[in-house]
């Protein structure tokens, strides 16, 4: 490692939170949070609602501004740049460069209703990455085949079921070839019979081991299947950190036990 940079970002981590604070007015959602994620690590965030899990994903996607502290992604500051000795908020150009490494799938899919399925997937590679349209379309059709929706390319997203929409949203995120994939309660809005299809797809994607994945979910079996590490959150801090087998079968912390029990009863 370059010694001149030793005080700055560290490249052995894909994601690094350093004393991250996020406040909304008087409400502190994240309280001096530190955590690190290695490249290609798959991490599930669990915890009661309001514990700050989704906020972590939204901060990484630059949908929210950090109150204090720093986040690094792939050895670069996410929303800061260094000016002299000081860290200052980064400009849009910097954000767009770092953002390239990150993709996100949302609870409510958020497909663009003014574009058909194919266009939903190709628009960002064409506009934001400058790929030729033909290349983007070939890639999009590959992805649609992968998510099992090859014949739906020219449909309007509104004509698809929730499960199909979410699979398109996954294809759309992957079309940008991110290194990090953020999954924000991706099956919570789906009818029960559609959950399995989306989960199978994500298991398949996770098992290839190419992506660093951060997943927020309430489906504990799914969490266990796709992740090699689980972080239990409460009140903006990490309560417990360990492999899924351990956290789900013999958690050490009382708060983790309480939370898991509450989830299983539901």
């Amino acid at each position: 490692m370059n010694p001149a940079e030793s005080a700055g970002p560290d490249t052995q981590w894909m994601i690094r939170f350093d004393k991250v604070v996020k406040r909304y007015g008087d409400l502190t959602v994240l309280d001096e949070l530190d955590f690190h994620v290695r490249p290609r690590e798959r991490v599930t965030l669990i915890g009661p609602s309001g514990s700050g899990k989704t906020t972590i994903l939204r901060l990484l996607m630059t949908l929210e501004r950090i109150t204090s502290g720093t986040i690094e992604v792939g050895g670069e500051y996410l929303s800061h740049t260094r000016r002299g000795d000081k860290l200052v908020p980064a400009d849009e150009k910097h954000l767009r460069r770092v953002r390239k490494r990150i993709g996100m799938v949302f609870q409510q899919f958020n497909l663009f209703p003014n574009m058909n399925v194919l266009r939903n997937i190709t628009e960002a590679p064409v506009r934001a990455l400058g790929r030729p349209r033909a290349e983007a379309e070939a890639k999009a059709r590959e992805l649609l085949d992968m998510v099992g929706l090859g014949e739906k390319a020219l449909e309007h997203p509104t004509r698809l079921s929730g499960g199909q929409q979410q699979r398109v949203a996954i294809a759309r995120a992957l079309a940008m070839e991110p290194e990090i994939l953020l999954l924000d309660e991706v099956t919570s809005a789906l009818d029960p019979e559609l959950v399995a299809g989306v989960q199978d797809l994500l298991r398949d994607i996770a098992s290839r081991g190419e992506l660093t994945i951060l997943c927020v979910t309430h489906e504990m079996q799914f969490a266990q299947d796709i992740s090699d590490r689980v972080l239990m959150f409460d009140k903006g801090q990490i309560v417990e950190d360990g492999p899924p087998e351990k956290i789900f079968t013999e958690p050490e912390e009382q708060r983790t036990r309480d939370f898991l029990q509450a989830i299983l009863k539901a």
Partner: peptide, 25 residues
């Protein structure tokens, strides 16, 4: 708002988000 957020997540520029996502809707 989630439409705008999806645009950010897909790394569209501010102008592209307005032109390609927000205005048509």
């Amino acid at each position: 708002v989630p439409q705008r957020e999806a645009g950010i997540a897909l790394n569209f520029s501010t102008y592209q988000r307005m032109r390609r996502i927000i205005l048509p809707q």
